[in-house]
């Protein structure tokens, strides 16, 4: 066991977990943040995507023991951050995914939304090619992607207004 000091969604969390656990395991099974999904658990699907210092990263292939100095954002962090910044309703990207019907089972959504968040933070007005490339590490077995891309376009427009 090791005590990890993690910066999760703006809070400092001290949590004891086996030293060899992945960030995904610590988030899901120690901290109770189950929004980050455990899909393939080996880097293929992107369902476990979190942001480390704003950069999309696979939690299933990150050791908790190597991310203590990074600010970790999970899907659960978006709404509180949006509200803390004076926003109303849902986070604009989450809202756009909802309005576009960009989900069916929803398993890919946390990862998709975080990849989209990181893209829009860097590039508020992406081309459709840039959107596709930025989401190309997130697999969706249900939607066929079209409405997901539309949601990112809508979120980009919304953020400009």
């Amino acid at each position: 066991m090791r005590v990890f000091r993690l910066q999760v969604n703006g809070d400092t969390v001290e949590v004891a977990a086996p030293e060899h656990w992945t960030l995904l395991e610590v988030l899901r099974y120690k901290i109770g943040l189950t929004g980050s999904k455990q899909g393939c658990d080996k880097g293929d699907c992107g369902a476990c995507t979190v942001l480390l210092d704003g950069v999309p990263t696979l939690a299933c292939l990150s050791l908790a023991a190597t991310v203590e100095t990074s600010a970790i954002t999970t899907i659960e962090g978006l709404l509180p951050a949006h509200r803390a910044n004076g926003g109303e309703g849902a986070d604009p990207v989450q809202d756009a995914f909802d309005r576009c019907g960009a989900l069916q089972c929803g398993f890919c959504q946390p990862g998709m939304i975080l990849s989209a968040k990181a893209l829009l933070a860097k590039n508020p007005n992406p081309t459709s090619q840039e959107i596709k490339q930025s989401l190309s590490g997130n697999l969706c077995r249900c939607t066929g992607y079209t409405q997901i891309y539309e949601a990112v376009v809508l979120a980009a427009k919304g953020e400009q207004v």
Binding site: T49, V55, P56, L61, S136, G137
Partner: peptide, 9 residues
């Protein structure tokens, strides 16, 4: 190489 997240890591 692979996808965006894997290239970030």
């Amino acid at each position: 190489v692979s996808g965006p997240q894997l290239r970030n890591m």
